[in-house]
């Protein structure tokens, strides 16, 4: 088991984390490439500031809590807080970041971490319940949405249990291995699934640029599909 833990913490972590970083970089690079090459001359007209402002307005989305989705909005907001803070700033993780990347992050206290973890778990469960029991949510949810939400829960639950032996039903290292492996699975999923919105949420706002269609494209499509003398 020790060997497994070592492997999961060492090479596997480096590999999966690298996949995540490289994948996200790819997303960003492709978006910027698209903006700079395909839309080349209009790069200056990209509403960068609007994008930043829009994105920031969602960091504290008080203005965006719609009456129809109040509980849902608040739950998802709280979940995201836990999702960002706990993996980065938990003391045990801080040590690991420092070892692994040389990042010197401040650490949050254990109490705060516990509260955030429980909050995240609770909110994720709530979102899962929404997806399961509300017809409108069920309508737009695919298997991947449930799977990712549960995969997201796994490291939090197993991490919490590993840190609290009193309520831990399984051996510590089994729990810890679950924790690490599920987090690594999540790393791999980040660039390959909808979790990529960690970086893309910024670029999704540039629809103003996407409305600027490519001149002549329509004619080319029509020619390719209907031949040279394409009629309306």
């Amino acid at each position: 088991m020790e060997a497994w833990l070592d492997f999961a913490r060492g090479p596997l972590f480096a590999f999966t984390f690298g996949i995540m970083l490289a994948g996200l970089c790819r997303q960003v690079a492709l978006q910027i490439y698209f903006l700079s090459v395909n839309k080349g001359r209009r790069l200056k007209e990209v509403p960068w500031m609007t994008m930043v402002r829009d994105s920031l307005s969602w960091v504290i989305p008080i203005r965006h809590i719609e009456p129809g989705t109040k509980i849902f909005s608040i739950a998802s907001f709280l979940m995201h807080i836990g999702l960002i803070i706990v993996p980065l700033f938990l003391l045990d993780h801080v040590v690991r970041w420092e070892r692994f990347l040389g990042l010197n992050l401040p650490a949050i206290g254990k109490g705060v971490a516990d509260i955030l973890t429980l909050l995240t778990i609770a909110c994720s469960l709530l979102l899962l319940a929404y997806r399961t029991f509300r017809a409108r949510h069920r309508m737009v949810s695919g298997p991947m949405d449930y799977f990712l939400l549960m995969l997201l829960l796994l490291p939090f639950v197993s991490g919490y249990l590993a840190a609290h032996p009193a309520i831990n039903p399984a051996p510590w290292d089994v729990m810890m291995l679950t924790h690490i492996l599920s987090a690594e699975a999540l790393f791999i999923m980040v660039p390959a699934s909808k979790l990529a919105h960690v970086v893309l949420f910024f670029f999704d706002r540039i629809s103003a640029v996407h409305w600027q269609l490519r001149p002549g494209a329509g004619d080319k499509v029509a020619e390719a599909l209907f031949g040279e003398e394409a009629k309306i």
């Binding site: 978006q31 698209f34 737009v140 660039p191 990529a196 999704d204 629809s207 996407h210 490519r214 494209a217």
Partner: peptide
């Protein structure tokens, strides 16, 4: 022939539903 691909790529990857 068009520029929809990056848009669709970006949307499908951050499609949180």
């Amino acid at each position: 022939f068009t520029d929809y691909k990056p848009l669709l790529d970006s949307y499908r990857r951050s499609n949180t539903k």
